[in-house]
Amino acid sequence: MSDEVRGLKGTQLYLNDVHRSFDGYKAINGLSMVITEGELRAVVGPNGAGKTTMLDIITGKTRPDQGRVIWAEHTDLTKLDEASTARLGIGRKFQKPTVFETHTVEDNLMLSLAGDRGVKASLLFRIAKAQKARIDELLELVRLTSARHRLAGSLSHGQKQWLEIGMLLAQEPKLLLVDEPAAGMTDAETMRTAELLRDIAGKRSVVVIEHDMDFVRALDCKVTVLHRGAVLAEGSLDHVSANQEVIEVYLGR
């Protein structure tokens, strides 16, 4: 692969000088970022900074106009579609919680379990013991055991967020992209989510987009500030909070 990436041992995701505009509006404008294996990273930025668009580009939903997006040192993500990036091991939680509303909570997790995604495999699928156990485990983790037979559509907003996180974990991804997970959660739930994400990190890389500063603080990780489609500052929360520009465009006052 390319010279720039070679030698970056342990790089999970590499973005370099990525551009994307919509009708002339530069949503992503020279964005560069490196996520290492097992890293937990928080991404913050004002509305319209391009955070969600960045995830769209990583997952193959949106094609960049220019720039490089490299997965695990040698796979070019700009050529792949959503299903392919998911199969590589990228899991994504949407900003607006998206679960299968007419399926039960259990079926939602069952559909997300890692495994062959082909048509034939789906037709012949029989659930294995280990998979059943894994579902139990996940239900416990996201505290939905008692709701296991309920339709996902009947869950509260916060519960849907949890379910979606559970589905994400069921995929056994190498990288989790989590878009505003705390929206609609109580303070206690928010803190638990932060805890959960911290636990996950280490085994997997995690990128969290969030506006809630308490949540970001609880994550206790490196923070990237995005503004107008590019990185404005990067470092510890205290470091970026002290940055004059960041205060101006994002933190306010």
Binding site: E82, A83, F94, V99, F100, E101, L111, R117
Partner: peptide, 14 residues
């Protein structure tokens, strides 16, 4: 039927 993009992001070739 209910959430096509969710299915895609789970790795199914819709």
């Amino acid at each position: 039927r209910d959430a096509e993009s969710r299915t895609r992001f789970l790795g199914y070739r819709v």
